[in-house]
């Protein structure tokens, strides 16, 4: 069996904020069709790495390539059309819009109606909205959000907002999905739902997933491969089994409170 192609490659990436070294010479690869988890203590640089991959931050040095393309030359608003979607650790939904409209807003990159077309909203513009509504409704069904379809998301509870954000990312129809702590702040039941949604997404939507998660049990269950960051450095990489036994990882985790692996 040949190895699937490398979708994302992070090459020797460093990122500094003043004196803080958020990332130090990090390299890793994600192949088409994998689920890769990034773990590490708080402040390890996990979010920073995701931010670099989604061009939200520009690495101080090093290079990131997606599907062979150097992201340094891609403006932030071209990241989604390339096929990268993400969710945020602190949820970044359009709070004034309904669930439906949050997802519709994400269809932006797949729609073609221009300025005048939107002013007139006649014929094509209207038909296009209808067609994309079908795609969005499919995602709403898939994530079991029918009951909050018309609810303004700012007023939804945390767990549901996380789910809407996943839905919004899926509405982009990405090739690579970046999830920043998709289950933080959830109760056990919500976590299990979310894990199920992530796995279903993976299976049914032909998407590669790179996720940050604190819940080790879940990471071990769903990830093909795990990357461990500590103080901005990659200290280990391997299958969940290998990671569990890695002495460096155990040490990094014993150093802090939630040192359970």
């Amino acid at each position: 069996m040949t190895q699937p192609e490398v979708l994302l490659s992070v090459e020797n990436v460093s990122l500094t904020f003043g004196r803080v070294q958020a990332l130090a010479h990090v390299s890793c690869e994600v192949r088409q069709g994998e689920i890769v988890a990034i773990i590490g203590p708080n402040g390890a640089g996990k979010t920073s790495l995701l931010n670099c991959i989604s061009n939200f931050y520009r690495p101080t040095s090093g290079r990131i390539r997606f599907a062979g393309r150097d992201l340094a030359r891609v403006p932030a608003s071209r990241i989604a059309p390339l096929g990268i979607a993400r969710t945020f650790q602190n949820i970044a939904l359009y709070t004034g819009l309904s669930t439906l409209d949050n997802l519709m807003a994400a269809r932006h990159i797949h729609m073609k109606s221009g300025f005048l077309g939107c002013l007139l909203y006649w014929g094509f513009g209207h038909r296009e909205d209808l067609a994309h509504r079908l795609v969005v409704e499919e995602i709403i069904d898939f994530l079991e959000m029918q009951h909050i379809r018309k609810a303004v998301v700012g007023a939804l509870p945390h767990g549901l907002r996380k789910r809407v954000e996943l839905g919004r990312a899926l509405a982009l129809e990405p090739r690579l999905l970046l999830l920043d702590e998709p289950m933080t702040g959830m109760n056990q039941e919500e976590k299990e739902d979310m894990a199920r949604f992530i796995l279903d997404t993976y299976e049914r939507r032909d998407v590669t997933i790179l996720l940050i998660e604190h819940d080790m049990g879940l990471v071990m269950d769903i990830a093909d491969r795990v990357i461990v960051l500590d103080f901005g450095k990659k200290i280990a990489e391997g299958t969940p089994e290998e990671i569990k036994q890695n002495p460096d990882v155990i040490k990094a985790y014993l150093g802090q409170e939630h040192g359970t692996l």
Binding site: A92, L97, R168
Partner: peptide
């Protein structure tokens, strides 16, 4: 209006 940074990463 609601989240310009997210909007940009979502292709706006």
């Amino acid at each position: 209006r609601d989240h310009d940074l997210a909007a940009e990463l979502l292709g706006v």
